[in-house]
Design a protein around this nucleic acid. Structure first.
Lengths: 129, 129, 129, 129
DNA sequence: GTGGTCTAGACCACG
DNA sequence: GTGGTCTAGACCACC
C-alpha cells in the first residue's frame, strides 16, 4: 500500500494516514488477518513521527478496523456487522455531498454513477461477520 | 432553516455552520436569490459570535454558493456549472465512504440505495446558470 | 461614457464609479471643459443612490480632476502639473504591481509591453497646464 | 524585512501587511523556500494582533504566494505560471494608473521610465515552477 | 441598517 | 512551539 501525505494540507496528517489505510483495506490491498507495518516502519515509510502513526493506529482500533496485539503488531479485522451509529454518520455525509453536488450542477444520474463506480473499486470478497 | 451546532465536536463551528447551510440550500429550504439571515441575526440564532458567522459566509462566498451584497446582505446563488476540481474531490470522498461502508458490512445495493435516498431529498427545481 | 458597477464586489461603489470616470477622462471620452452628468442623472444612469454619486464627485473635485459649479454642474478640469505626492503614490503602486507580476511569472519585457499598451489608450491631446 | 503600517489609513491593516510582504518577496528580500516570521512574531514586530497577521497569511496562501506547513510555519512559494485572471486584473489596474498619470501631467515617456525603474527593483533570479 | 475590521486574551489541535 | 478557533465587544465604512 502506497501512502502519500501532504504536509501542507489543512487536513491533519494522522487523518490523511487513517483515510488512506481505510481506503486501502476497503480496496482489498490489505485483507482481513493481514498485518500492517509496525508503527516505526510506517513512520519511516510515510516520513512522519511515530507519535503520529501511533495516534492513527489507535483511532483505527477504536473504529474496529484493526486489532493491536502487543506481540504481533497491528492486523486488519474482519468486516463488521452493520451498525446504526455508522449508518447515521453515512447518511449525514452523503446528504452533504449530495447538496454540494447538486449546487455544483451535477445531476442525480451522474451522482449515482459516481457512487456506483467508487463502491465497485472495493474488494468484493464475501463479508464475514 | 434550523441550525444545530455541537460545541463539543472537534469539527470547527464555522465548518458545521457551513455544512448545514449548504445542506439547507441543497434541500431547497433556501432557494436561489433568497436572502440568508444577516450575520448578526444568524449569530444570535446559532448562539455564536458574529465573527464566526462572518467567516462561514466568506467561505460560502468563496465557494460560489452565496453572494454578499453590501446593501442587501447575503443571498443564495444559482446552481453552478460542473467543475473538474469538485468532481475530483467528490470521487475521493465517495471512495473513502465506500471503503468505510464496506468495512462496516454494508453491501453495494444498500450503499447505493442510501445514495439515491439522500440525493432525492435535494430540491429538484431546474435552475441552471 | 458607459458605467458598469458590480454591487457584489468588495470595492465600494463610489470607488468603482470614481475609477471609471477617471479612466473615461484619461481616455479622452470626456475632454477638459466638458460637463459630467448631474448628480441625479448619473445616479439614475448608474442605478445608485445620489449620495453615492455625490461622494464620488466630491472626491474627484478634491483630487483636482473636476470642478463643481453650483450653477453649471461638474466639469472636467485641465491636465494638472506633475506633483510629488502623486509621483510617490504612483511608484508605490507600480512597485506592488511589479512584485505581483514577477511572482505570477510575468517577465519584464511583457510587463513593460502591457504598461505601454495601457498608456497608449489614453488621449494624446497636448497637455495644457 | 521592515514592516511599516499606518493605522490611520483607510486601507485595512491586513491589506497593508499583505502588500508589503508581496513587495518584499518580489524584491527578493525573501526568497523561495525561505520562512516568514511566525504569526506571533510578525504580530509583535508589526505591533498588531495575531489574528490580523493570520488573516494576512491566509490570503497570501490563497493567492499562492506562500505555503503554510503545520510544522514549520509559513514559507515563500516558487514563482507561478502566468495566469489569465491575473493578467486581466493587471491590465485594469495599469489602465487606471495610466489615466491618473495622464491627468496629473505625466507624459508617456516618463510613465514608462517609472514602470521600468520599479520592475527593475525586483529580484531577477530565475526560479520557474 | 448592513457587513468589515480589529483587539486582547483564551483555549485547543497538531506534531 | 506552531497555527487554528472562538469570544465579547468595539469601532468604522458603506449605502
Amino acid at each position: 500500500m502506497i501512502i502519500s501525505l501532504d504536509t501542507r494540507s489543512s487536513v491533519p496528517i494522522y487523518v490523511q494516514l487513517r483515510n488512506q489505510i481505510v481506503t486501502g483495506i476497503g480496496r482489498g490491498e490489505l485483507k482481513a488477518g493481514e498485518s500492517l507495518p509496525t508503527v516505526r516502519q510506517m513512520a519511516v515509510d510515510a516520513g512522519v513521527n511515530t507519535m503520529t502513526v501511533n495516534k492513527t493506529y489507535q483511532i483505527l482500533k477504536a473504529e474496529g478496523f484493526i486489532e493491536i496485539d502487543r506481540r504481533k503488531g497491528a492486523a486488519v479485522c474482519d468486516i463488521q456487522a452493520p451498525d446504526a451509529v455508522f449508518r447515521e454518520k453515512l447518511e449525514t455525509e452523503l446528504e452533504l455531498l449530495s447538496a454540494e453536488a447538486r449546487l455544483k450542477g451535477i445531476e442525480k444520474d451522474e451522482f449515482l454513477k459516481i457512487c456506483d463506480k467508487m463502491f465497485s473499486c472495493m474488494n468484493p470478497e464475501t463479508a464475514e461477520v
